[in-house]
């Protein structure tokens, strides 16, 4: 529910750096509301895949939310190996939105789809290896147990390893959510977009599904990152959750800062960045293995 707020925070931060007043925090809610009340336009070329894409995108994101713990509290669903299911649900989202993009027969969307699968194929090992480092550190196999076992002491004791894991997760977070330096969500040139271009022909409620699903994905990967960096346990459930929420807001501000102060990487450089994420995760694992 709170997920679209993060985008509001990111945009506000960016506006601050740009010296603008910026859109309201709740802008995405207004957008969703407007889009849900609109009709839709479809290309002649498209088939039912194009209509199914946004539905699967949002459904998979919503189900993936069930697996993500926040602030030491248990996720609604938790079992050994749920981290694999989480990664593969993100894969399922991508699979269908890429197909929906290819369904339009547009070269622009084909290009975006091609880049999306390339980057995600490289981001997936980084994500799973970073989680493996956490799993090794805590000796647990489910996200709830892993993040439940994290604490400030662990962070102090294994500082370098956890910082490397956080670095890997941050890169995955930025790449998977189409933020600078991998992709520029503000661009207005179709040729340079990756994530935005996939939904170029989507309109009305379908586009609302895509936007909300993206916000959920931002939240999911953000929660994984905040859980590593802010494992503060006060003993009170609500306080822990409050701290984590504050952490999410901080992460959104940090993302805004990164976007405002960095330029986008050349496309050919992005695989190196993602390779670096895997390398960080492997280094973290080596440290944890000691």
């Amino acid at each position: 529910m709170l997920a679209p707020l993060l985008l509001g925070v990111i945009n506000k931060t960016k506006a601050f750096f740009g010296g603008r007043k910026g859109q309201p925090f709740l802008q995405l809610y207004y957008d969703l509301n407007k889009l849900l009340r609109k009709g839709a336009v479809y290309s002649h070329t498209t088939s039912w895949i194009f209509r199914a894409g946004p539905v699967v995108w949002l459904a998979a994101a919503a189900v993936a939310m069930l697996l993500v713990p926040l602030g030491g509290s248990a996720a609604p669903m938790s079992f050994a190996g749920d981290l694999v299911l989480l990664a593969y649900l993100l894969g399922l989202m991508r699979f269908f939105v890429v197909l929906a993009a290819m369904d339009t027969g547009s070269a622009l969307e084909g290009m975006g789809a091609s880049r999306e699968v390339q980057f995600s194929a490289l981001a997936e090992p980084a994500l799973l290896l970073a989680l493996a480092a956490l799993a090794r550190q805590t000796g647990q196999l489910s996200l709830t147990d892993i993040y439940g076992a994290m604490s400030f002491d662990v962070l102090l004791k294994t500082g370098p390893a956890m910082i490397l894991v956080a670095g890997a997760l941050l890169i995955v977070f930025l790449a998977e959510n189409a933020r600078v330096p991998v992709d520029d969500p503000d661009t207005h040139l179709e040729l340079t977009m990756i994530h935005e271009v996939l939904a170029l022909d989507t309109s009305g409620p379908d586009f609302a599904f895509i936007l909300y699903g993206s916000a959920l994905k931002l939240w999911i990967l953000g929660a994984l990152l905040v859980g590593v960096l802010l494992p503060i346990r006060t003993g009170w459930l609500w306080a822990d959750i409050g701290i984590s929420l504050a952490g999410m807001v901080l992460l959104a501000v940090a993302t805004g800062v990164i976007e405002s102060t960095m330029a986008r990487l050349r496309l050919l450089r992005v695989p190196q960045l993602l390779g670096a994420a895997s390398a960080l995760a492997i280094l973290a694992l080596i440290l944890v293995f000691r």
Partner: peptide
């Protein structure tokens, strides 16, 4: 009950 448009794919 809403208007569903048909158009060609967007090519800038």
């Amino acid at each position: 009950g809403r208007s569903i448009g048909q158009a060609s794919t967007w090519y800038c």
